[in-house]
């Protein structure tokens, strides 16, 4: 169990709803859910969620902390916002799903090799490095995440697409050498570090 997780368990005891309200992005909305299920029926990846947003909201209120935070479900969110615009109570469901996933990730409770967790982490680290996304490095990082052999296999399978993109001038092999980046990278990094520091302090995630 991570130190952040033990600390959270200690602090909130059995009040998981309060934990979500205080620490999860837009978590204060969870108690507003009236269990109509429109979100579940509106999700493009609906069939792949073990627990729909509606169920997750009820589980939070029932104090099912471990089941919610280790769930694979919220990682199925494609950020399409269909649930948000259809929710009769106008809950920002997309953000609550992001918030739950991100919190579970932070506590080390999210499923380990969940592919969207891995990709989302790679994406942020990629953009945070130079201030802009390096599409080539992001793609390669994704292909080679499970090691060299499977990476080469995936890359070969996608070869015709990759070459097509290069030919259409929509992928630059030279990006491997650096690619686009910010002039004031130092300032950009300082902003992220400061923002993280403030957020961690506020959410009690300081070790």
């Amino acid at each position: 169990m991570s130190a952040h997780n033990s600390q959270a368990v200690e602090r909130y005891r059995n009040d998981f709803l309060r934990e979500v309200e205080e620490r999860v992005e837009e978590g204060q909305w969870v108690k507003m859910c009236m269990q109509c299920g429109v979100c579940a029926g509106s999700c493009p990846f609906g069939p792949h969620w073990q627990h729909s947003p509606q169920k997750l909201f009820m589980m939070i209120r029932a104090g099912k902390r471990q089941e919610v935070l280790s769930s694979d479900s919220m990682w199925m969110c494609t950020s399409c916002y269909n649930c948000v615009v259809r929710c009769p109570r106008q809950l920002p469901i997309t953000h609550i799903m992001h918030g739950l996933a991100s919190y579970a990730h932070r506590l080390g409770l999210a499923p380990k090799s969940q592919p969207t967790r891995e990709f989302a982490t790679m994406f942020w680290n990629n953009l945070a490095k130079k201030g802009r996304v390096n599409e080539l490095k992001l793609t390669l990082a994704l292909y080679f995440k499970d090691g060299l052999v499977s990476g080469i296999k995936t890359a070969l399978g996608m070869q015709s697409i990759g070459l097509g993109m290069v030919k259409a001038k929509r992928l630059n092999p030279m990006e491997i050498l650096g690619g686009h980046g910010l002039k004031d990278l130092k300032g950009f990094h300082a902003i992220i570090a400061k923002a993280r520091e403030i957020e961690d302090k506020k959410k009690g995630l300081v070790s």
Binding site: A120, N125, A195
Partner: peptide, 14 residues
């Protein structure tokens, strides 16, 4: 998709 690692405030700040 930056949400998982980015958190809330760093994303808004950038």
């Amino acid at each position: 998709i930056g949400y998982a690692e980015g958190g809330e405030l760093p994303r808004i700040a950038i």
